[in-house]
């Protein structure tokens, strides 16, 4: 029975609900961007139409590419995103079902999409894709340190637990972690790391269209490209969801809390869009300096504050 339940969670919440919300969020992102620039913007179904169209196109594999890796890379990334979203949903919908250390698993799995992009970029054998992949690699090294440090803050504040369920439980009793000093700082760090994980401006150096023509994804076409795009749109839901769970009280289904959850999520997506529309692209060395310098310092301060119980 429990197997069936987990498969249900995987298919219904891990894939379907996450994809629908992600597609909606990516439409909001494009529409808001258009409105900021005084344009009309795409119709509501545009992200879905894009995906359907890509399914009908040819998949071209460059002759210099390593074929298996080229095709497997997007699957690896996609699978890890599904795994994360299933863990997060299971945790939020049936509270007792979290296991020891699921926070570690989630943080680990959230790094896999970037890895899959790096793998795909190098496997395609295109020089521009390789440049993009190496930039992505530097970006991963840059933001993982402050990201993990920031994720330690809720762990410390909720009494050294590595269970997402316990972190949410702590927040239900003592108020959201983001309301404490250390939590607020860590939240800021996490939001900027999320921007980099999504590879959006100002941290979109790996995909910079104007310099390296789309970078890592340059050789991908057809259904494989659709998989990558779906992975990215799902991340647009999974990452804010994760941040809401560890910093902002998580998802609760009773009355006002559900509305609050929706508001928090829309707020985070709006924040991502605003950051992306009001900033120029950073060079990769500037991005690394930013994460290893100010962001790491802020994250360390946040951990220090948390250790003192603030």
């Amino acid at each position: 029975m429990t197997y069936l339940m987990y498969i249900g969670y995987l298919v219904v919440f891990g894939v379907a609900v996450t994809a629908v919300i992600g597609l909606l969020a990516s439409w909001i992102d494009r529409k808001v961007t258009a409105r900021v620039q005084y344009r009309v913007g795409p119709p509501l179904l545009q992200p879905v139409i894009d995906l359907v169209k890509l399914l009908g196109k040819e998949t071209l594999i460059p002759s210099g590419a390593s074929r298996t890796m080229f095709l497997a890379a997007p699957l690896i990334g996609f699978a890890s995103v599904i795994a994360v979203s299933t863990i997060l949903w299971t945790n939020s919908l049936s509270g007792g079902r979290s296991f020891l250390g699921d926070l570690v698993v989630v943080v680990y799995l959230l790094a896999v999409p970037s890895m899959s992009i790096i793998l795909g970029g190098f496997a395609s054998g295109n020089p521009l894709a390789s440049v993009g992949a190496s930039r992505e690699m530097k970006l991963v090294m840059a933001y993982e340190l402050p990201f993990v440090l920031a994720c330690l803050v809720p762990v410390i504040l909720s009494g050294y637990t590595l269970k997402l369920g316990d972190i949410v439980g702590y927040q239900t009793q003592h108020g959201a972690i983001a309301l404490s000093g250390g939590g607020a700082l860590a939240l800021i760090v996490c939001i900027l790391c999320m921007q980099a994980k999504l590879a959006l401006v100002p941290f979109d150096a790996p995909e910079a269209e104007t310099e390296i023509c789309g970078g890592v994804l340059i050789e991908y076409s057809g259904p494989v490209l659709a998989l990558y795009r779906l992975m990215k749109t799902m991340l647009l839901f999974v990452l804010p969801f994760f941040i809401i769970i560890v910093f902002m009280g998580g998802l609760r289904l009773d009355g006002i809390h559900l509305v609050l959850f929706v508001l928090k999520y829309v707020g985070l997506v709006a924040l991502i869009t605003v950051i992306r529309n009001t900033n120029p692209r950073l060079r990769i060395d500037q991005a690394m300096r930013f994460f290893w310098g100010p962001m790491t310092v802020v994250a360390v301060i946040a951990v220090g504050l948390a250790l003192m119980g603030w």
């Binding site: 344009r39 913007g41 795409p42 071209l60």
Partner: peptide, 21 residues
């Protein structure tokens, strides 16, 4: 540009030839 905005019709400028229709 904002005046004409072909993204209304779902058109995007593709950076790579492999993404183009």
């Amino acid at each position: 540009t904002p005046r004409f905005d072909i993204e209304r019709f779902g058109m995007l400028l593709a950076g790579s030839i492999k993404h183009a229709d």
